[in-house]
Simulated scan of single mutants.
Amino acid sequence: MSDKNNASLLGGHAQYAKGAVEETIGNVTGSQAWKDSGVHDKQEATETMRAANQRSCECPVISSGTEKKIGHAVGCQGMVQNAQGKERRQ
């Protein structure tokens, strides 16, 4: 995988986590703006990660175990599934 794909995949994960935090803040405070921002960030992040994964299935920068833990922590089922796919290919 090229460095650009790694950066896209990592950036997508970071953006998804950011969105999850924003959405949680919105839920806790009742702020619709925070909720909307979080949902938007998560949608964009999902698109970014999907595009990066289509270019290549492997991400050597993030281990499957780490990716799975992060996926569970932020509620990103795509990260969990991607990690499980890496484990099956190993």
Rank of each mutant, 00 (worst) to 15 (best):
V61N: 05
A83C: 04
A20Q: 00
G38H: 02
S63R: 02
A33W: 01
E87N: 04
K35G: 06
Q81W: 06
A33S: 04
D41H: 09
C76E: 10
L9K: 10
Y16V: 05
E87H: 00
E44Y: 12
T46H: 07
W34V: 07
L9I: 13
S31H: 01
A73D: 06
G19V: 09
L10P: 00
T46A: 09
K35F: 10
A20M: 05
K69Y: 14
Q32I: 07
E23W: 10
D36T: 02
G38Q: 06
V28T: 08
K35N: 08
K4H: 12
N6V: 11
G19C: 06
W34Q: 14
G71A: 00
A73H: 03
S64I: 04
S31D: 10
C59H: 11
N5W: 13
H72R: 12
R88D: 07
N27T: 11
M1W: 10
M1E: 11
C76R: 09
D36F: 03
G30P: 00
Q54H: 05
G38K: 00
A73F: 07
T24W: 05
A73G: 03
K18T: 12
K68A: 09
M49K: 05
N27Y: 11
Q43F: 11
R89I: 04
Q84G: 05
G85A: 08
D41A: 10
I25T: 03
R89K: 07
N5A: 13
N5F: 14
S2Y: 09
W34E: 15
A20I: 02
E44L: 14
G71C: 03
A83H: 00
Q54G: 06
T24L: 08
E47C: 04
D41F: 08
I25H: 07
T29Y: 06
V61Q: 10
V21E: 09
E44A: 13
T46K: 07
H13Y: 15
Q84P: 01
I62S: 01
L10R: 08
G38D: 01
G85M: 03
R89C: 07
E58T: 13
S64Y: 09
K42R: 07
T24G: 05
G30E: 03
G85Y: 03
K18F: 15
N6L: 14
E67C: 11
L9V: 08
G11S: 03
I62C: 05
N5T: 13
S56I: 09
V61D: 09
G11V: 00
C57L: 14
T29G: 05
N5H: 12
Q90P: 00
G78Q: 08
I25V: 11
N82G: 08
K18Y: 15
I70N: 06
N6E: 12
Q81S: 09
H72I: 11
D41K: 08
A83V: 02
T29N: 02
M79P: 00
Q43M: 13
G65I: 02
A73T: 06
M79Y: 02
K86N: 10
N6F: 11
K69E: 14
A17L: 00
T66Y: 15
A17M: 04
R55N: 13
E67Q: 15
N53S: 09
G19H: 05
A52H: 01
K69P: 02
E47T: 10
C76M: 11
Q90R: 13
R55V: 13
S37Q: 12
M79K: 02
T46N: 07
G11K: 00
V80L: 02
N53K: 11
Q77W: 08
I70S: 01
I25Q: 08
T24D: 03
K69A: 15
